[in-house]
Amino acid sequence: MDHRPQAWGRPRDDVYGAYDHSYLQNSGPRQATQAPIVTGTSVIAIKYKNGVVMAADNLASYGSLARFPDVKRLRVFLDSSVIGFSGDVSDMQFLDRHLTELSIDEAYEDPSSDSKAGQLNAANLHKYLQKLLYKRRNDFDPLWNQLLIAGFDGDSKPYLASVDLRGTSFTSPSLATGFGSALAQPIMRRYAATEEDAAKLSREEAVEVIKECMKVLYYRDARSLDRYSIAVVTKEGVELKEDEQLEKQSWAFAEQIKGYGTQTV
């Protein structure tokens, strides 16, 4: 499966044959085409006993060019939820502005400072975004993103869910978008295969798993970066660090890799 955002929303190669890129050279009349331009790669997240940990690197790519190396892809909503964006960066900015307006509207009715009750929680936010992205898909004007939403549900239990550009949504103890679904998800499932497993994880363990996954993604995903953002959502709020450096990298394994393409020795 091709996990690059460029492949999202396209007819699958193994179903419809190789993708026809000729439209890119077309000098004729412009058609109402849609494709992601500047993109962010994987977002990963895992639930633990008292909350959720999420991470994404700080890179926005322009095709294979590492175009913007200082892009923050984790966004905080109402101090209580985090949204991780992968896919098109301009659509992410649109959504970010839209959510800013939404959070201002929410504060009209409830300006009390010490209570979060009555405000949109992560489960509400996820439902809202699912409806929004599904509506845009129905209009054939999709927002080219896959989002992870982390926070708490109505029962104050840790909540983690995903929505993509078609409005498909699901939840799981751990989630990953893009390449992460192939590279990080198996690692995270070793620690949190079920909700019960996730409820036993400590915060430190969860952060450690996420950092390990970010390292694996940097090793193997060519559209990734070693600077990343990491957020921990707890009942007290969101702790977001936006300029972390991957630590303890070891590229020794690279020596062992042989036999790709024309390489024979």
Partner: peptide, 8 residues
């Protein structure tokens, strides 16, 4: 700026 993604 609203929607800004990096520090430039």
């Amino acid at each position: 700026v609203d929607g800004e993604v990096g520090s430039g």
